[in-house]
Amino acid sequence: MYTGKVEGTVVATVKSPGLEGIPLLVVRVIENGKEKGRIIAADSTRQAGTGDFVYLIGSREAGRMFRKPLVPADAAIVGFIDDYNEEL
């Protein structure tokens, strides 16, 4: 699992049937508090919006979040982060 910040939305009408009805969001990956690049993530919470601090699941498990067969996703938002502390 890793963390990120939602920065936008992606619209694609022509797509794999498994992705129908699943929001696709632009997420800024954040590792150890450092901002990395942007990816596209499928939003399994269906409530995330720009500015939300979220955590994500990657690779094959991302598709499993949607409990239907054949969801070709390798990044999925699975929850929101209210606050966190680091014991460095």
């Binding site: 936008g8 939305t9 992606v10 797509k15 992705l19 696709l24 942007r38």
Partner: peptide, 17 residues
């Protein structure tokens, strides 16, 4: 590696990128 969508548009940082 597979292509699973054709992008129509992307909005990020409050603008259409």
């Amino acid at each position: 590696n597979a292509i699973v969508a054709i992008i129509d548009h992307i909005d990020a940082g409050h603008k259409r990128i």
